[in-house]
Amino acid sequence: MFDINELERKWLTYKIKSYLPHAIIIISTLVIFITLFTTINYQNSKSRVQNGNTAAVAKDGNISKVKAETITAKKVDSNTQNTPLENTPQKAQETINEKFFNEKNETKKVETKVVLTPSLSFMDKINKSTVSEPIRIIEAEAPAVETVKEEERVIAKEEAITLEEPKGSINIKRQNIQNDIEQVIKRFKKSNDPTLSLFIAKSYYNAGDYNLAYNYALITNEIDSNQETSWIIFAKSLVKLDQKDKAVETLKEYIKQSHSANAKTLMDEILSGEMK
């Protein structure tokens, strides 16, 4: 005879034992897969972060280098002293589109089209208070301005003032362009595509932000040293940052390698003083 309960208990033990190796194999396989998946994911994200950091380091390094070499802007007069230029990159970026938009009109008026960053506090002042006194608009076409920078700052100021009347439409456009650039920067950070960085460099150059134009041109050159446009933007930005010698030197090196006609032309223009 047998004890059926005991037999059932033994059978249960047997089943557990017989399934145990399968369970161990399945769990081990799952653990291995999860570990591999996590490791791969971690490595991918790490490499992405490293790429981002490298770009950021390069960018920061260049900025500091440029900053160190950049000659501090001269103060134009007491009026301009009251409205100091904003140097923070974020604020500067906000003004890029405005500058970019106004630049097209400005090229007709001024031959040397250099737009400096307008003061945001100045903007705030405009936005907050209704201007009781008529603001004196400095003639943009005035050729008698002593230095280019002084002229540029005045133009920038003028542009900022003129924004007051057609407020709505200009603001919308500015934000859109700014958003566009930000989106392109995001895309560039993801893809590291030199075409995108070149576009950003061009946009900053056109907007008059030569520091950022210089940085992105430099990044583009690092990624793809055969981008002629990038070298030209790079050299032009240097000229705009009063680094004429460095620009010429860079162009010479590039011409040696590429024999680029456009680069030669630009170098001639810089040397002759046509390109300022």
Binding site: F2, L7, K10, W11, T13, Y14, K15, K17
Partner: peptide
């Protein structure tokens, strides 16, 4: 199958 296995345990064909 359960009863087959129980029988095998009882007869010693399966060792628990």
């Amino acid at each position: 199958n359960k009863i087959i296995e129980m029988s095998a345990i009882h007869t010693g064909l399966i060792h628990v």
